[in-house]
Design a protein around this nucleic acid. Sequence first.
DNA 1: CTAATATTTGAACGATGGTTCAAGTTTTGA
DNA 2: TCAAAACTTGAACCATCGTTCAAATATTAG
Lengths: 196, 196
Amino acid sequence: MQRKNEARRLDILRAAARAFRRLGLSATGMREIAEEADLSPGNLYYYFTGKDEILLYCQERTVDRLLAEAARASGARGTYADRLRTLMSTHVHCMLDDLEGTTAHLEVEGLPERMRRGVIAKRDAYEHAVRDLVAAGMKRGEFAKGDASLVTRAMLGAVNWTARWYRHGGPQSVAEVADALADYLVRGLLRTTAAK
Amino acid sequence: MQRKNEARRLDILRAAARAFRRLGLSATGMREIAEEADLSPGNLYYYFTGKDEILLYCQERTVDRLLAEAARASGARGTYADRLRTLMSTHVHCMLDDLEGTTAHLEVEGLPERMRRGVIAKRDAYEHAVRDLVAAGMKRGEFAKGDASLVTRAMLGAVNWTARWYRHGGPQSVAEVADALADYLVRGLLRTTAAK
DNA sequence: CTAATATTTGAACGATGGTTCAAGTTTTGA
DNA sequence: TCAAAACTTGAACCATCGTTCAAATATTAG
């Protein structure tokens, strides 16, 4: 059955994502992915053409999710501050959540040039969407004027970095981190008059 | 002569750092380091016990530099905002400067457990120093109250991330990026009253 | 039940990358 | 000047990792 095959592929991708998250990209080989997915190494090649394809699908899954969230934020109502806050918070969730969390899109170097292109294009589109929110907020006067591109990269760096230090089971939940972080990042954008 | 040997080791380390920066950690092997340093692969083992040691020294050089800067910031005069700004700006310079810039400390996973410990300890000490500045500024009322630890990680994420996107020869200089970034990051800390 | 098809395996292949080493070359010190 | 020490090399060794493949097993269709 086609359905069965498709489902199995997804299972394997999820297992691979788990392995990548647990062991790191460079330390995760076909053998580790196979073990995490409960099948033999050779069997992986029945479902995928190779490691590159597995990694590619993992990265696209993640970046597609981010892109969808960015599109939602772009079309949403409310202040730019609110929309940016929820987008950044969601970004953190996308990476850290137990079930589907992935940091795959951060390690594009693991892909051969040819496959990289698509992921990078989507990643750029996401960054572009965030920057547009920042720039629009500046133009509208909601945010202080500044280098929207640079600030966007700063924000993305901060949220992506959570993958490096956040540990599940620690004192603070993903939601707490996500909200507090988004709050700080947007606070640096707001037009303000310094307190005495 | 001992002096000569010592100098050669430093030359090799600098060459290795260049190679790491140019090719990325995973794509840089002993053969690449050897070529960049103008000697044969086997000869590297006369100066170092192996790749791990080279990487270890590279990372320690970087993190030692950061630690020294943090110590200076801790002991300096001026507002916490000013001191944090210059520290973050210097951090960016440490990573991106043409001559000695290194992103080695970002890839600790490349080291075996045993060697990792020391680097991680120093990296934590650096983070601790930054957090102390943030916390002190909060306590003094210069900064808004908040989760000093989280904010510190956000700042470090943003500055470390520059290594991923900054390209030499682009429109903006390292100094411009460093200053603008530091400015944004500290602005998010300041006690402010929202503008109407 | 049986043949065709889909799935799975375990061993082996080839390339890559860290490392070793015996043999050379250069430098040093008396 | 000459022997000992310091340095350098290139080839080969070995482990790892992505990958292939022929054979075995499970599933499906008639």
